[in-house]
Design a protein around this nucleic acid. Structure first.
Lengths: 208, 208
DNA sequence: GTCTATACGCAGATAGAC
DNA sequence: GTCTATCTGCGTATAGAC
């Protein structure tokens, strides 16, 4: 009882998704270089290899493309990285995992981070709220694990809230100066930043 | 032999400067809230209390207003804060002074920092180069004082360049979440960040 | 799903009087 | 130095054929 309509339905959707992803990826690239407002729909279409009007089959507006980019740097880390904070291990171990995962993701989606961190003002108020909620959630969980580490005596820091801001600002700032292909790999930077952030700022001993 | 043309010349220039500063200050405010591209010349003019066309007596273009804003968050810190690194004292003392001065300036020009850190892409290539040169200069001097502290044995850090990025990203990130009138004053945050950045990240003992 | 052709509103900028 | 009036082009978005 195979149903032809079903077996072909999935591949067809996947093809559409790929074109969608292709648009988002190309748009992120150009937005990061030129800035959202300077880039026209025709520029994005050119990069993808279609005409401007065809974009509207995939996205209702230019702003929705930007929204999709912003989601990949807020929703994705929230869903993929935050579970690491619920895993087994000490706060030191769990936060170190999060830092590493965050930097791997940031490197994989580097241009998206640049856009997502700089073009928030171009979102509609509704979309901006969604993005800011994801960011607040992430920030909150980082702060919570720092607080947990303070209670367990692993971390010694004057103010958990300030420390959580210092940490996330350090991490996200990397998108502005790191480039693949330099002396250091992203894993090198991650090693360094785990040392600076978790051990030095928070005061975790290397035994934890 | 008083010369009327001269005694009135300076006040007249000052009045013009004040109107100029007024435009820049109002523009920074609106740009920070709404985003550079969404704000029209008429919006800026409304806030100042003049008509749109009158702005062009003071600035040749909207982009030049943005450039002026970006200069206040790059040129001003470079000229006002960097001399602190040439003063007497240990690297620990000099870098601590810089951090405090930086945060006081960031608080005084908070909306300008938000704009200057997010709207770089809207500058002409020529203007962007100027701004980026100031930022590179600042970054370089921070890195140099860290290197000096490593040589003197005060600082123990794996990589001076990475540490300098971590430091400046931490500091500038504050503009995104700090608001005057909260629990902590900017001086409280400065105390906290000197501890986190200079003493913990860089490893300076409190005796230095 | 992509195309050609086009609508159309808005925002930056100018002209020239006062 | 500020005004009124206006231009002009650009860029998002739509209509409708293929």
């Amino acid at each position: 009882m195979t149903q032809p309509s079903e077996v072909t339905a999935l591949p067809r959707q996947q093809r559409t998704r790929q074109r969608r992803d292709d648009i988002v990826a190309n748009a992120a690239d150009i937005f990061a270089r030129e800035g959202y407002s300077k880039v026209g729909m025709r520029d994005i279409a050119d990069a993808v290899g279609i005409k401007g009007a065809s974009l509207y089959h995939h996205f209702p507006s230019k702003e929705d493309i930007l929204f999709a980019i912003c989601l990949t740097v807020t929703q994705e880390p929230a869903e993929e990285n935050l579970p690491l904070l619920d895993a087994a291990g000490t706060p030191t171990e769990r936060l170190s995992s999060l830092v590493r995962a965050h930097l791997v993701h940031l490197n994989r989606r580097r241009v998206e981070y640049i856009v997502g961190l700089h073009e928030l003002a171009s979102l509609t108020p509704e979309h901006r709220t969604v993005i800011e909620d994801y960011r607040r959630q992430y920030q909150r969980r980082v702060r919570d694990v720092i607080t947990a580490g303070m209670r367990s005596g692993e971390f010694t820091v004057p103010d958990a809230r300030l420390a959580s801001f210092a940490l996330t600002d350090m991490l996200n700032g990397i998108s502005n100066w790191f480039h693949d292909g330099g002396e250091l790999s992203i894993e090198d930077v991650a090693d360094n930043y785990v040392e600076l952030a978790v051990h030095r700022i928070l005061g975790a001993s290397h035994g934890n």
